[in-house]
Design a protein around this nucleic acid. Structure first.
Length: 462
RNA sequence: GUCGCUAUAGUCUAGAGGCCUAGGACAACAGAUUCUCAUUCUGUGAACACGGGUUCGAAUCCCGUUAGCGACACCA
């Protein structure tokens, strides 16, 4: 059975948009193959933990519709799914490696390591652990028995590592470029490298699809799998999302937390749809499609290797498409949900058809319709010189027995004619009198929604 | 610096040797519709990083250069 996973670290306040992209791909690949999608929390760096980050990231993923079959939230056959709760497991496997001669203890202080690296750098060498402790393991073991802090290091063998990346094809590394990686830290926590390999193996992960930043550590992982004598999963490395200036997507230049997009009124479906198109394209060239369709047509082999720029303009366009395709009732509910209490639901219902082709995201609703809930107190153009015409407007409005879009329209065209103003000037003036703004949803419809009395009142107030 | 990944318009991409005088989408611009804006429709400009090979033929294969990105921690 195919089992995929994402293994995020709760070191931010929410799930990173790039993690959502890889999560989506992993999720789709599992679902497509009737497999399982797992979320495992890699919280092994105690110093970088952000309080509440894990919970937020888990709930956001759920809101987006990426539902894990196994996770810290729902549990599963390989629980626990949080690395901080699996410490004994890593210790056991680290010990196994030592016994096999594939790893060794190291008691070097950080001072010595820093000094060593500085020296190596001064000599223009690649900084790498000098295996000082390897040469005297017996002494080191005695130090440890005496209570000295220690780490466990992987003994990198002299070899060439070749593997076939699902997305990039064959990749080669010389192990001589690799450092004797720390596997178990002195605080008893594993490093990422030990943690992923042990857990991916134990949790029977078949496809490891993760960000490109992990490509250079994959050889270390392969060495670890071989040291344990375990079967390796397939590896696939997806390109990192970029800022418009091509640098790695960062919160300084873009919102990076998934919930920030939801808070702006981007739909989860639209966000996923857009993310799916980063580094992949629909076989029929479609731009708009839902999760179900994505799962159906997605294939790892179609994933592209170039790193895409995350373009919020196109995301917003896409969200606008979702808004325009959505049934009125559904959009109404989403708007109500988004803007919260304090607005007349009947008015909202009437405005939806007026504004939905003007909205790109839910946060556009209120600025567009504010005037329906509150009379304007500033006018974008001065209206003094139109007082007389406006009186005529009011007189005419007062005569209308049926206050409908159609009747209002007819009446206003009449007044425009009588006033001698050009239609464009007349309607702009009237628009500003009613809404305060030069740009607004259709005027006659808006006036109908406001009602006769309110319109007359607003015109008088000018 | 070392190792690795990548390279089609401003952006996302199609393209797996002849179907490419390079296709689609967003954005831009122009026009039509319209009392504004938006929607919708029509149209325009815009790209194979560079240099060498291989081949009858290269955006597509190979090599090099350049550029961008990533990794070189007791962070993930």
């Amino acid at each position: 059975m195919i089992r995929t996973r994402i293994a995020p670290s709760p070191t931010g306040k929410d799930v990173h948009i790039g993690s959502v992209a890889t999560a989506l791909m992993n999720y789709a690949w599992a679902k497509k193959n009737n497999g399982k999608f797992i979320i495992r929390i890699e919280d092994t760096d105690q110093s970088r933990l952000v309080p509440g980050g894990e919970k937020k990231m888990l709930t956001t993923l759920q809101e987006l519709g990426i539902i894990a079959d196994e996770s810290p939230l729902v549990g599963g056959p390989f629980a626990p799914y949080r690395q901080s709760e699996r410490l004994d497991i890593y210790k056991k496997y680290a010990k196994e490696l030592i016994d096999k001669g594939k790893a060794y203890y190291c008691t070097c202080t950080s001072e010595r390591l820093t000094e060593m690296r500085a020296k190596q750098q001064a000599e223009k060498k690649v900084p790498r652990y000098d295996r000082f402790c390897l040469s005297q393991q017996e002494t080191v073991k005695k130090q440890i028995e005496g209570g000295m802090k220690y780490v466990v290091r992987l003994l990198i063998p002299e070899t060439e590592i070749v593997f076939t990346d699902l997305i990039r094809g064959e990749v080669r590394f010389q192990s001589s470029n690799l450092d004797d990686q720390v596997l178990l830290k002195s605080d008893g926590f594993p490093t990422y490298h030990l943690g992923v390999v042990v857990d991916d193996h134990l949790m029977e992960i078949t496809h490891v699809m993760r960000g490109e930043e992990w490509l250079p550590s994959t050889p270390k992982h392969i060495i670890l799998y071989d040291a344990f004598g375990w079967d390796k999963p397939f590896f696939g490395h997806v390109s990192l999302l970029r800022n418009p200036d091509k640098s790695k997507l960062s919160k300084r230049k873009n919102p990076v937390w998934a919930s920030e997009y939801i808070e702006k009124g981007i739909f989860p479906e639209a966000l996923l749809n857009y993310l799916a198109l980063m580094g992949w394209s629909h076989p029929e060239g479609k731009d708009i499609f839902d999760l179900e369709e994505y799962i159906r047509v997605f294939d790892i082999k179609d994933v592209q290797t170039t790193a895409p720029v995350f373009d919020t303009t196109k995301l917003e366009w896409m969200n606008g498409e979702y808004i325009r395709q959505m049934p009125i009732g559904e959009l109404k509910n989403k708007v109500i949900n988004y803007i919260g209490e304090g607005y007349d639901e009947k008015v909202i219902e009437k405005t939806i058809p007026l504004v939905r082709e003007r909205m790109k995201k839910l946060s556009d609703y209120l600025p567009l319709t504010e005037f329906l809930f509150k009379a304007p107190n500033v006018y974008e153009i001065p209206l003094e010189k139109y007082k007389e015409t406006l009186d005529k407007v009011n007189a005419k409005l007062g005569l209308l027995s049926e206050f409908s879009t159609l009747k209002i329209g007819e009446a206003m065209v009449d007044v425009a004619k009588e006033s001698g103003l050009k239609n464009s000037e007349f309607f702009q003036m009237l628009r500003v009198a009613i809404t305060g703004k030069k740009i607004s949803p259709p005027l006659n419809e808006s006036m109908e929604i406001l009602g006769k009395e309110e319109c007359i009142k607003r015109i008088k107030a000018v």
